[in-house]
Design a protein around this nucleic acid. Structure first.
Lengths: 105, 105
DNA sequence: TTGACAGGTAACTATTTGGTTACCTATAGT
DNA sequence: ACTATAGGTAACCAAATAGTTACCTGTCAA
């Protein structure tokens, strides 16, 4: 699982949207995903290929469908690269505080 | 703090190396960072500018030096976007297992 | 067995991005 | 005062990237 592939895959807003869709609901086909994005099917396919190469998405064929699943492991590895056990609590608390402030604003 | 800036900032290997250096030790000057990277000072400066714009690095001037500090909050937000409280334990455990296997290999 | 649907390949184009050189500004120390 | 050091701006170039159209393959269902 190459680092670079993961970060490059995450760099595009369309690909992040695809991950959002899969986070919301797994096992989507290409056509399903395509219908949620303003883009050609081919465009979506190329994005999914990159996400799969990065290990962020895994796929399985069902007849003529190819279903897509989100794999959160590479995301966690990003986290662990720059947030160690000691700072994790502090950062998480800070983020939660920030979220609380934003929702009550 | 724009999403897109963060992800684009993380997409480049040199910028990730800079974050690694700051993770290892904070408060580094541009010249310090430059000495660890095979690149012109200007190249490093442009990378740092992007990291700063993304909020991944914060800076403070001391005389003629500009010191750079790692800000882990945007990294945590990436994590929280695709890993919810329920799957976090599972994923963290999986990652730890993976790390254990790799170190004893 | 034919038509419709789901997915895939190839070739091309416009834009973005990473990096350079050349030149400029500000602070420290002797 | 002046020289070395730390940082900054502008203009430019080569390579990578996101997206397109046109065409091809495989599977389901009547």
């Amino acid at each position: 699982m190459d680092d670079n592939l993961v970060f490059r895959a995450l760099a595009d807003p369309t690909r992040r949207l695809l991950l959002d869709l899969l986070f919301e609901r797994d096992a989507r086909s290409l056509s399903d995903l395509e219908s949620h994005v303003e883009m050609t099917r081919i465009g979506v396919m190329k994005h999914l290929r990159l996400l799969e190469a990065a290990g962020l998405v895994v796929t399985r064929r069902f007849g003529r469908e190819k279903r897509h699943y989100l794999n959160p492991v590479p995301i966690r590895l990003i986290h662990d690269r720059w947030i160690d056990k000691y700072t994790e609590r502090r950062v998480a608390a800070l983020v939660n505080l920030k979220k609380t402030l934003e929702t009550t604003k």
